[in-house]
Design a protein around this nucleic acid. Structure first.
Length: 863
RNA sequence: GUCCCGGUAGCUCAGCUGGUUAGAGCGCCGCUCUUACACAGCGGAUGUCGGCGGUUCGAAUCCGUCCCGGGGCACCA
């Protein structure tokens, strides 16, 4: 590669992200850098994106998740893997269905019932094509290096086929069945929901105690949902409960109706709660349903799909909440209310989508029998075939997977995958696969599948399953899955269930990396209702994608929630500027990447190469554990503190000395490697800088640096540490003395070496002592270097005395602590020799330090 | 009820396989436009490491217990 010498300095004085990011990204895509190539001969590395909702916009959580995935894939690509990051979107069945219905209501003034299924689906596709998919453009803004040629959608043709194929297979294996059970019903969305789609919240309600029957056979029950009494078909008591034993087997009159219901004995009842008697409404409560099954009770449904009472009489047509008040009022009038507790705080289930109170309801739905699948999913992690990072999240995975209940997969909406079961005119049902044609006259089930059913297939359906494609063969199992711990159950567990099942026991991914939630600056969860949502796109506009990405990764500790605010984005933007300026300096200084790195280098050059290779090794190790926050920390400090603050300052000297050529090469090497190391996290600014510095084609396809342990150089490191120690201490002295940074001061140095003295003098702006040098102040550093100054102005003796006194106190403390340890036989006897030796050294050092300070104090003119 | 995670500088967090004077970023206070960078440089201040006990020569780090915050699961009608 030939380095094209940069035109003038080669870089504009400022970096304007908005000007370069878009064109740069499109160039990467056009050149096919992100397109996986099964024929490349490289080992594969693959991951699938957690498909965002087709209706979604890029929010800060996506930005974090995708920044992590982009860093992982870009690094893998640089390390020589055939890398696939597969993008796509989820059809978001219920969410889109609702949006389309609302849209049609607004634009056409019609409701759900006014469209046939086909008409509705046509409208929905139209809507999706028009309003959906915004997030794809926003992912480009972030810089996501995804393989757009393999983009998928959970309702595209191939994925439909995958869905139908696995449904048929599960159905034939008796792992999908249809049954009438109590399900979570949302009366607003008018569909069933899975357990996972219900959120429980404690709310104040009422606990009403009602007397059923009269006189000797009266029995009091308590309820928070009085309206369900219309559906009661029994009262249950515990079999051992003496109070009610005589009533078991008799019947009692159900108030407000002319029905009599039996009193049954059931183990489920807790005799110590309330009166020990429970009203049983089998069609509207899961526990009551079980009691009803055990005692063969009738199970009348008393509400319609909207939650309105259907029982003929005065309450018919009332909404369930209105009915509750009306029924309590009527019972009160009847003198049947014996106690009312209000407010009574208890957990109430809500629809996770629209927040409507869920109605448990007896309903005929489709289910996945999960038990055999869940066993395999749990074992795969237990056996280490799938690693969950961070390890602390493993428990949560098992909590889910080992306690799974059958999954209700049918939904009463239209947008989604229609259940591939057909019914004959006689009522027989049969499942047909994608290539099978049902007999004419049969009609298809009108329900669609839970959105998560198709996303559970994502790691293999997107690669071509059920066909044995090259991609499937090559990229499954995927290497790593990155997602939030909040969808561990919704998605990760279900991918495990279906992946292991469909792929004959092959896991869907080898490692799961769970990240936390992004919160606002005060640690609160972001939500529209709180009004604390931040839009990453606004920050990208303002500070560039690199700054947004890096500020998110900077806070990304595995599995932990993190906060973000604009100031931190500003901070990382400043880091980009720092890199920019450092590279400008390098270019102006003739830094080069041409030719081999000198085998032997000296001084600061040797030191920075030593550090660079240690940093590479450290970063590699941290990537293995997905410790993004630490990777950022390491690179940030290496770049800013070591490269910019020390190495470049030291290099300014050697660039005018005999080793200038060597330094130019090392400076080029260090920046080259640094930009490579940072590229996966901040792809744009590093690309601009690196191409300017090296003349290379693109960092995207450049090689990841290899750590070279042979560059470790303890001697050079010690030299630089010595320079740093003296410089830092004298700077402090100067600052305390009020000597301006720019003021040059004549001084003599003793105890320095010819290799360190020029650097120390230059960094401290100390001139040689010429004629007429008069020492007016001096300083002996901890490392034994004596610096004598000729300060023209007055020395601030008091300030210096304060400083030294403070240092002396610290040294005294150090001496006392360590001497005490040495005087403690328990310590010297039991602690390892290495630790004791260390303490002994510290005592010696502290004593020397005190002596040095005392001498310095004595040398100060008296005030 | 049960389980998990967390409580370290004003804020957000590292450190926690026990052993330097407990760190970083931001913020704060000084001094500087020193020719890559004021989106910067240099210097500085700031902590009963949630409380109390225990183990240990030695505890921010291990154990117990309590308090506070966040979350998961299950819920008694």
């Amino acid at each position: 590669m030939t380095a094209t010498p940069p035109e003038s300095p080669g870089l504009p004085s400022h970096f304007v992200p908005a000007d370069v990011e878009g064109p740069l990204y499109e160039r990467w895509v056009e050149r096919g850098y992100f397109t996986a190539d099964p024929d490349s001969g490289k080992p594969p590395f693959s991951l699938v994106i957690p498909p965002p909702n087709v209706t979604g916009n890029l929010h800060i959580g996506h930005a974090l998740e995708q920044s992590m995935m982009d860093a992982i894939t870009r690094r893998a690509r640089m390390r020589g893997f055939d890398t696939l990051w597969l993008p796509g979107m989820d059809h978001a069945s219920l969410a889109v269905n609702n949006l389309v219905e609302r849209y049609l209501g607004e634009t056409e003034g019609k409701g759900r019932a006014d469209y046939t299924r086909d008409e509705f689906m046509a409208k929905a596709w139209e809507w999706k094509n028009r309003f959906g998919g915004q997030i794809l453009g926003q992912m480009r803004r972030l810089g996501d290096g995804v393989d757009w040629s393999r983009e998928r959608f959970t309702m595209d043709e191939g994925l439909n086929r995958a869905v139908n194929t696995i449904f048929k297979r599960l159905y034939d294996d008796d792992l999908i069945y249809r049954a009438e059970r109590i399900i979570n019903w949302c009366p607003l969305d008018m569909t069933a929901l899975s357990d996972a789609e219900v959120e429980h919240a404690d709310e104040p309600g009422e606990l009403v105690s009602i007397r059923y029957g009269d006189g000797a056979d009266a029995i009091v029950v308590a309820t928070t949902r009085a309206e369900t009494m219309l559906g009661d078909t029994a009262v249950a008591v515990h079999p051992d409960d003496e109070r009610y034993r005589h009533l078991v087997g008799t019947t009692v009159a159900l108030p407000l109706t002319n029905r009599r219901i039996p009193i049954v004995a059931d183990e489920h009842v807790d005799p110590s709660f309330g009166t020990g008697a429970v009203k049983v409404t089998p069609a509207h409560d899961p526990n009551d349903f079980e009691i009803g099954r055990r005692h063969d009770l009738p199970m009348p449904t008393i509400m319609d799909e909207r939650g309105a009472i259907t029982v003929p009489g005065p309450f018919q047509g009332l909404d369930r909440l209105e009915a509750r008040y009306a029924i309590v009022a009527a019972l009160r009038e009847d003198g049947r209310i014996v106690a009312e507790k209000r407010p009574y705080v208890h957990a109430v289930g809500h629809c996770s989508r629209c927040d409507t109170v869920i109605e448990p309801r007896l309903s005929l739905q489709w289910w996945v029998r999960v038990e055999p699948l869940a066993k395999a999913a749990g074992d795969a992690v237990r056996e280490g075939r799938v690693t969950v990072e961070p390890e602390s999240m493993r428990g949560r995975y098992f909590q889910w997977v080992d306690n799974l209940r059958d999954w209700c997969i049918s939904r009463q909406v239209r947008w989604g995958h229609q259940i591939p079961v057909w019914y004959s005119p006689d009522g027989d049902d049969m499942c047909f696969g994608p290539d099978e044609t049902p007999p004419s006259g049969w009609t298809q089930d009108t329900d669609v599948l839970d959105t998560w059913f198709s996303s559970a297939l994502w790691p293999f359906s997107t690669l071509g399953w059920p066909d044995a494609t090259t991609d499937l063969e090559r990229y499954y199992p995927t290497t790593v899955l990155v997602t939030g711990y909040d969808i561990l159950f919704f998605w990760v567990v279900r991918m495990m269930l279906f992946g292991l099942y469909a792929m004959d026991g092959a896991v869907p991914f080898e490692t799961v990396v769970l990240h936390g939630l992004v919160r606002d600056a005060s640690g609160k969860k972001m939500s529209k209702s709180r009004g604390n949502v931040v839009d990453p796109l606004l920050w990208i506009d303002e500070y560039g994608a690199d700054a947004v990405r890096l500020s998110l990764l900077q806070g990304a500790n595995p599995g932990a929630d993190q906060a973000i605010n604009e100031e931190w984005v500003v901070g990382t933007r400043n880091f980009g500027t720092k890199l920019w300026n450092a590279t400008r300096f390098a270019l102006m200084s003739g830094a080069t990447v041409d030719g081999p790195l000198p085998a032997v280098v000296e001084g600061p050059d040797a030191w920075i190469l030593s550090r660079l290779n240690a940093v590479i090794a450290e970063v590699d190790a941290l990537y293995e554990r997905y410790e993004f926050a630490k990777i950022v920390d390491v690179l940030y400090h290496f770049a800013w503190d070591e490269v910019c603050d020390w190495y470049i300052e030291l290099a300014k000297l050697s660039l005018s000395g005999p080793t200038a050529d060597s330094t130019r090469r090392v400076l080029g090497e260090v920046l080259d490697a640094l930009l490579r190391l940072l590229h996966p996290m901040v792809p744009f600014v590093t690309e601009v800088l690196w191409t300017a510095l090296t003349g290379g084609e693109s960092l995207v396809i450049a090689d990841w640096p290899l750590a070279d342990p042979s560059r470790a150089d303890a001697a050079a490191t010690a030299d630089v540490r010595a320079i740093q120690a003296v410089v830092t201490e004298v700077r402090r002295f100067r600052s305390d003395q009020g000597v301006k940074p720019s003021q040059r001061v004549p001084a003599t140095l003793t105890g320095v070496t010819p290799t360190t003295e020029p650097a120390i003098r230059a960094l401290l702006r100390l001139d040689d002592a010429g004629d007429g040098f008069a020492e007016t102040a001096s300083l002996t550093t901890a490392s034994g270097v004596r610096v004598a100054f000729d300060l023209s102005g007055t020395i601030d003796v008091a300030a210096e005395r304060t400083r030294l006194t403070k240092d002396r106190a610290a040294a005294e403390k150090e001496l006392a602590t360590n001497s005490a340890k040495l005087g403690n036989e328990a310590f010297t006897g039991k602690a390892p020799e290495a630790v004791v030796a260390k303490v002994r050294d510290r005592v010696t050092a502290a004593e020397a330090e005190i002596a040095r300070i005392d001498a310095a104090l004595a040398a100060l003119p008296s005030a």
